[in-house]
Design a protein around this nucleic acid. Structure first.
Length: 480
RNA sequence: GGCCCCAUCGUCUAGAGGCCUAGGACAGCGGCUUUUCAAGCCGCCAACGCGGGUUCGAAUCCCACUGGGGUCACCA
């Protein structure tokens, strides 16, 4: 058993690709097989060099390590298709020599015209194979005349049935099949040719990919037969759609894995959530680690219906994982988050970071922590007071927040500066003055952070330190 | 439009003829807790697309319809 993930480097790894990679990884793990990574960069125009590195980073972040392929090496080097052009051309030549492929000289525009004509006649367009296939001399003459020359595959006119592990038996009628291009005018192979040749040469025995390929798999089947390659196992995955039911596209929001990483999500949560899109272990079980998935995954429990990508549920998964992962792991992930974001939080102080993690228990993403505590590490005059908060907790009422702050100042100057001591001090102040804690904690929060949101007030002040706390309270009082 | 595929709460799904007055989770709504936010706890709302069959019995099997998606590129 060998599976592969074969992305094309046209952008970031998005959640759909991540799920495909995950399932292929799991399949190999589960069956004691190998998981391979190959880059399909046969589109010169859309290729982005830095995309390869990004995809590699994202896969690593998710923990989906591959046994063979890009960077890992292996018996079928190289693993980038742009470096395997000779191999594809040799296979194309083999087909040409056998009369199973032929040159075609129509330009893109001419083909477009032919398609439009077919559409006007309400007919499906099928490329008309010439009775006499052009010779290589004729092809060369056309090239010399400045025409674009491609190579098309001679498709046998027969029904093609594939056995798919998720969808079962699927037949493509012969009437739908026509001679498709396998070698482009620029000398690069098309996806179909390169993909089939590489899967065969690299020993890939099981192909799991998105359902968008299901209706095209006949091409691969026919190509394999012509080339004498064995048939692999096929398994197509239901698609992931956006909440509107449209195909998930990079345009409708940040569906890139990297965007979730930057936004403060845990890879455990993203992986867990994605695994449940189109697959489930049965019963009510939902919380699954990569290790769990490696034990449980199988194509038998794959669904057939498209899934919508529900960010709210992802958030809930993240919240749950954040609440249960060991602190060491959270610390590591938190530091990764900080390295990717510009925040005033000192990323080098592990003890402080652990404190923040504890003090913010219940956080949904690391971004929540940054939003809640960042201001504590900013310069004392670098934050603004939320006007609504000021109105509500500082300036309103007879015994207003400002006066409470003024009364509190002397006590704070002499206080023991630990969370518990500060908490006790404030409680005592409340009792003595017959005030609710809200009447004291909230004015302090606004004074010290500009907002009504922060960790527990004792923790907040302890984190800030006496000097900064007092300075901020005085600044607040001064701008009354 | 041709072809292929799919169809359970708003969402992810459990369900493989009687265990289903359809279960879980997220969201939503209500409440509890309360020094804020988040978290947590309790409760509520909410689905088998429609119509025919088959069967003693159908969410589960069959057919048609409707709806949705995919695919028909010198993109992968």
């Amino acid at each position: 058993m060998k599976t592969r993930f074969a992305p094309s480097p046209t952008g970031y790894l998005h959640v759909g690709g991540a799920r495909t990679a995950l399932f292929n990884y799991l399949m190999a793990r589960r069956r004691g097989g190998r998981f391979l990574l190959r880059i399909e960069d046969t589109d010169v125009a859309r290729h982005q060099e830095d995309a390869i590195d990004k995809i590699v980073q994202d896969l690593r972040w998710l923990g989906l390590n591959w046994d063979e392929g890009l960077e890992a090496g292996g018996p079928a080097e190289p693993y980038r298709q742009s470096q395997r052009l000779d191999i594809y051309r040799a296979h194309v030549q083999k087909l040409l020599d056998a009369g199973q492929a032929y040159y075609a000289m129509e330009s893109t525009q001419e083909l477009e015209t032919m398609r439009e004509a077919a559409a006007a006649r309400k007919e499906a367009f099928k490329y008309p194979r010439p009775a006499a296939l052009p010779t290589s001399e004729q092809a060369q003459a056309a090239r010399d005349a400045g025409r674009e020359v491609v190579v098309r595959f001679v498709c046998p006119a027969e029904d093609v049935t594939i056995q798919d592990d998720a969808f079962g038996s699927v037949t493509m009628p012969a009437a739908e099949i026509d001679d498709f291009i396998i070698l482009k005018a620029d000398g690069y192979p098309t996806y179909h040719l390169a993909n089939v040749v590489d899967d065969a040469l690299m020993g890939v025995t099981y192909i799991m990919r998105g359902q968008e390929f299901l209706a095209q798999t006949w091409r691969h089947v026919l190509l394999r037969r012509a080339l004498g390659f064995a048939e692999p196992g096929y398994c197509h995955l239901p698609l992931i759609m956006d909440m509107q039911g449209r195909k998930l596209s990079k345009r409708d929001g940040d569906v890139e894995v990297h965007a979730f990483r930057v936004a403060g999500y845990l890879s455990e949560a993203l992986l867990n959530f994605i695994a449940l899109l189109g697959w489930n272990p049965g019963g009510d079980r939902e919380k699954l680690s990569l290790a769990d998935l490696e034990q449980l995954f199988g194509p038998d429990r794959l669904g057939k219906t498209n899934a919508k990508f529900d960010r709210d549920k992802l958030l809930a998964f993240n919240t749950d994982w954040a609440a249960t992962l060991p602190e060491d792991r959270l610390l590591e992930a938190f530091k990764d988050f900080l390295s990717l974001n510009d925040t005033p939080i000192p990323a080098g102080d592990d003890d402080l970071l652990r404190t923040l993690l504890r003090v913010c228990k219940g956080f949904r993403t690391f971004a929540d922590i940054a939003a809640k505590t960042g201001v504590l590490f900013a310069p004392d005059d670098a934050y603004a007071y939320d006007p609504k908060a000021v109105e509500k907790v500082l300036s309103k009422g007879e015994r207003n927040g400002y006066s409470v702050l003024g009364d509190l100042l002397p006590a704070l100057e002499a206080a023991d500066w630990t969370p518990a001591a500060l908490e006790d001090l404030l409680k005592g102040f409340c009792e003595k003055n017959a005030l609710g804690m809200g009447k004291v904690a909230q004015p302090l929060r606004v004074a010290v952070t500009g907002t009504t949101v922060s960790p527990a007030i004792g923790e907040t002040l302890a984190l800030l330190g006496r000097a900064k706390t007092l300075a901020r309270i005085r600044r607040c009082l001064a701008q009354r």
